[in-house]
Structures are given as C-alpha cells and as structure tokens.
Design a protein around this nucleic acid. Structure first.
Lengths: 223, 223
DNA sequence: ACCTGAACACCGTTCAAGT
DNA sequence: ACCTGAACACCGTTCAAGT
C-alpha cells in the first residue's frame, strides 16, 4: 500500500528528516542543501510514494522555505530525475555484488536476476520513479542517462564474460542484455502492480523458473 | 514526446471532443455522460498523457460543469481506472485476433507477442495508465481486475493450446504465461521509456529475437 | 551566492442550491 | 436524478526583496 504510485492518497504526513534541524529564522541552511533535499526526497518517495512528494513538503521537513529548492534544482522534474539517477547507482552496486558473490557465471547470473527483482520489490516507489521519470529519452537529465546506462552495463558485462567462457550463444550481447533485462524488468513491474497474483515466495519461484527458461533459451549448445 | 508521462508539460491545450456539443446554459447533458466522459478521458490521455488529464479540462471539453463528473465516477482515480479497464478490453481483442490470424500455434504465438508490443507502442500513454492506475491490487476497481485478467487469459489459452498439441513444456501454464507476459511487458515498458535506445525497426528485431529465445526456452523436447 | 515570503495560476473535492 | 457555481485546501512556480 505504501510504496505504490497513488492517484489519491490519505492525509499528507510529514516525513521525518534524518537530521532534525530547526533553524532559527535568521539563519541559512549552510550545508549541502542539495544533498539534503535529494535525501529527503528519496526518503519521502520510499515511505509514501511519488505522488506525495511535494516541494513544499520537502522544504517543510528540512525547515527551509518553499522555494529554497529552486537554487539547486531547475524544477520538480529535475529533483525526481536526480532521485532516479540515485536509484540506478544503487541498483548497479547490487547487481555487481550479486555477480561476484554468486560466483561469476551461471550462479552469478541467477543471483543478479534475483537481486534485480529484490531491489525493485524492496523499494517499489523508488523503482517506479527510475522508470517513469523520463519525459522522453532525449530531454532527460544527463546524469540519469549515465547512471541508467551504468546499471545496464553491469548486465552486458556479465553476458560478454559468459560468452567468452563459451557458456552463452554468440548473439549480439546488447540484444541478449535487452532480452534479459526485459524479463527481470517485466517481472518486477508486474509484481509491483500486483498483477502476478503472487506472494513474495511465489515471485521468487517465478524468478528462478524464469532464470532457467532464459538460460535454456540463450545457452550455447555443444559445438 | 506526446504520449509519455510528464512531470511538467507545456501549456494546457483543450482536447477537441468528437461530438462538439455546445449546450445552452439551461440544458442538461442528457445522454450517456458517463460514456462521454470516459471517451474524452481516453482521448486526452492518448493525445497529451495522463498528467494533462484534469477533471476540469474534461468537463470543459464536453461543455459540462467541473463537478458533473462526480455523478458518474467516485473521483479522478475511478475515472482513470475505467480508462485502464477499457485499455485491457482492447488489448485482449488485439491478442486474440493475432492468435487466430497468425495461425494458432507457433506462428500465432509470435504474432501475439508482436501485437502486444505494438499495442503498447501505438498508445503509450494509455498503456502506461493500464499498468499504473492500481493503488494497490486489493482496492482497485473490480471491472479493471476483470478486464486485466481477461487479457492475461488470452495468453494462458494460447499456451494451454500449444501444450495440448505437444509444442510446449508441461510446466504450470500460469507460470509459463507469467514468464512470457513478463518478457513482452518488459520490452514494451523499456521501449516506452526510451531505454532500449532503439528505433521501431530495431524494437521489432528485438521482439522477434525474444520470441525465438522464449520458444527455445519453453518448447517441448522430443520424448 | 543563497534564502525568503507574497502572489499567481492552476488543481481535486465538497456542498448547498437549482431543475 | 442530474447538474450547477462558489468555496476550500491544496499544488508548482515566479519574483522582488533581503543578507
């Protein structure tokens, strides 16, 4: 319930900031306000969803004026894009961790898929923002583009590694990566939307089923 | 650019209604206002995206008061859910058409996948609404639930048909359907978000590549 | 540079009142 | 039953003014 996009939600609640700073009226924020605004936006989104994110609310939570934000972000869209970029950075970390800890290869690849879906399910609102913030591909924040490409690259790297080892078909690695990404993204989004009619254990089962089907579909046959 | 979710868009333009009905001030709408509101909402969403859909705008386009809508829909969320339900109805038609015209079997299955992605790409804003309207799975419009399940059923039917013919593995058809749905939904969403860095021809190539990989992954091996 | 409050043009929603 | 305008409590954004 919390954590999903809502068209209309309950009464607005203040999201407690990490550092409570009740500044007196004659003081400035003086600190990394940009960082503080971004962190608070992430926190609000994770707790209450994007639709409850208001510039006024973020300002209020930080004890700062309604319009202070415009010194650091062009507008609300820019703030949300920064949140999305942050999400892709975290996602890439999770994926590379899974790849190495899963043992680089078939096991690592399966671990990556599971880590991807878990990331989406653990922070549904944040994940939604990552894939809905783009107005259109062209006009979006370059930082967001870079971080999005970075997360995708973790997947491409794992695929080319396996191709070099002769584990996967010699198709275009980008096409293979797009295919695999589509599967995990599709599972994540359908699960978030509650369209898989499945609890978290059943989703795990679907993920491991999907990993097996993917592998059968793209593994290299003996030469 | 038009047709994608936007956080902030250009100046609001009126969406021309199909039947221009300039009623005089002393008249009622008297007709299927619910239907007219729904159609106008679909039109506005397809032309300008969800974020430009306002109750006031829909009323204005239809020459009706700002609040007339509340006689037919509980609130804005209910209107959007009705739009989503409408979308699933259309999607199911497209899928079953593709299945029969594609020749029921491997060809029909491939045609369904292509039809699915084309539907999403042709009406991106409408497709987005279909998969973002749900507050949470429980509290959503029963009509939306029914229509969503109906579209999914078209896929399940195609799978069980192929299983009966011995073309597909004897796995749980629901799990197979969830897997296949995840792939086409994933491709559609990534393409809509401009994250596949591909034009429409390249997306077609990805779809046919994906169909081959899916088939290799789930086809029945000779006994 | 950085921050402020007042003001502007929007929203969705409620409600007493009209036919 | 169906529709109406006025009113309420919100928004994002702009801007002249403060330090």
């Amino acid at each position: 319930m919390a954590g999903s996009r809502t068209l209309k939600a309950g009464p607005p609640r203040p999201t407690p900031p990490v550092r409570v700073r009740r500044k007196r009226a004659d003081q400035y924020h003086h600190g990394d306000l940009r960082r503080a605004l971004l962190d608070q936006a992430v926190r609000t989104i994770q707790l209450h969803g994007v639709d409850e994110l208001t510039l006024r609310g973020v300002g209020r939570d930080l004890g700062v004026s309604r319009t202070a934000l415009y010194r650091h972000f062009a507008d609300k869209a820019a703030l949300v894009e920064a949140v999305a970029a942050q999400g892709f950075r975290t996602l890439r970390e999770r994926l590379t961790e899974a790849w190495t800890q899963g043992g680089e290869g078939g096991g690592g690849f399966a671990a990556m898929a599971a880590a991807y879906v878990h990331f989406a399910l653990e922070q549904p609102s944040h994940y939604r923002v990552m894939f809905g913030a783009a107005l259109d591909a062209a006009s979006c924040d370059p930082d967001l583009t870079v971080e999005g490409a970075g997360a995708f690259q973790a997947l491409v790297d794992a695929i080319t590694w396996q191709q070099r080892e002769g584990l996967l078909r010699d198709d275009d690695p980008l096409q293979l990566a797009n295919y695999v990404w589509s599967v995990v993204h599709g599972i994540s989004m359908l699960a978030l939307d509650g369209r898989l009619r499945a609890n978290s254990d059943e989703i795990d089962l679907l993920v491991s089923f999907a990993v097996k089907r993917i592998r059968t579909g793209i593994e290299k046959l003996d030469p």
